[in-house]
Nucleic acid binder design. Sequence first.
DNA 1: CCCCTAAACGGACCACGGTCCACTTATATT
DNA 2: AATATAAGTGGACCGTGGTCCGTTTAGGGG
Lengths: 199, 199
Amino acid sequence: MSAIPLPQIGAQPAERGDAARNRALLLDAAALLVAERGVDAVTMDAVACRAGVGKGTVFRRFGSRAGLMQALLDHTERELQHAFMFGPPPLGPGAPPIDRLVAFGRARIAMVEVQGDVLRAAENAPEFRFGGPARSLSIAHVISLLRTAGVEGDLELLASALLAPLEASLVLYQVRDLGMTTERLADGWENLARRVTRC
Amino acid sequence: MSAIPLPQIGAQPAERGDAARNRALLLDAAALLVAERGVDAVTMDAVACRAGVGKGTVFRRFGSRAGLMQALLDHTERELQHAFMFGPPPLGPGAPPIDRLVAFGRARIAMVEVQGDVLRAAENAPEFRFGGPARSLSIAHVISLLRTAGVEGDLELLASALLAPLEASLVLYQVRDLGMTTERLADGWENLARRVTRC
DNA sequence: CCCCTAAACGGACCACGGTCCACTTATATT
DNA sequence: AATATAAGTGGACCGTGGTCCGTTTAGGGG
């Protein structure tokens, strides 16, 4: 009897070559569809067809439409994360926490401005929406900033409350249906953040 | 040539008798389904069947599933509106604006506690979600309270930001998936409201 | 009482998200 | 190279929300 394989510890058994290739193919197809026909055209069938694979494969790789959208955002999301963790001030370390917080809010609104539709589509995931890794990191970051700023109280809830008005669906509604500018939204959020962290 | 009918001015041409009867039938059926089998069992087909009408009728009356849910909430929603407009303090007029604001937040969280599922299902309406009458009234109310409290700045955005963390989907996630108690949420929201209106 | 018309009706139909499972294939082991 | 097996694949299938349109009916005016 040989030893149990145990390929990696603490990681999934690694993805098979064809699987990885198909993932890339699917992401390309999806991105292309978004670019040329809008997010509504990103149908699971359409993506599958365009990538030349079966529909089942799309679901196997991404779990759901929202999961696919999430994957589509992954790059941008990581960039933002990297920026506020290691990048230059005021977003990254080095600036006063409140300035970093404000910069963070502005960055997210800017992200909605450019990726709004995909972002909103990704929010339709009962499981990912609030518990996903991106969101969790954001929450943790905001909590940390609040703590550093000396804010007291239930920081977890305060962070949630600060993040809530940055949800893509709300921001898009305010911009597209109410005609608010993103500058106004950003200023409004800064106002909120400063009020919350004041005293 | 006779005068133009003009049944009502400023109102829709009035609903036909059978239409009104069917609306009631459908609402009953939907409420019953919610009560005995949960909100997920409230399928448009199921409601139609149970009410003894065709599916098309459900859509004609309520526009969409979210619209039906909205209608299901109408009574409770009106009650809350009445309470904060005409009811006793601290929710109604007579108490200091900040106390009224806090009471309002608590009331909404309580509403989520009891009608959460329906509320969340009603939120899935691209058009109703933020622009619906209930939401508009809430916004207006909060704006008015903020103004009375002497808060300055972009009150519309501030009100939005205060309402955002009260969204049913978020509250339900915090309660059911994170195990937070509604008391904690209510206290957290009070904390937020007081910080925002402070100074 | 009849007739006319706008409103309401119903259910066939469609598109899409998601599931399932019999079949194929990559890769590790020998 | 042969084999074993877990992973991957594809597309038929399903339920549901939503649309469409030919038919029915309420109810007011003559």
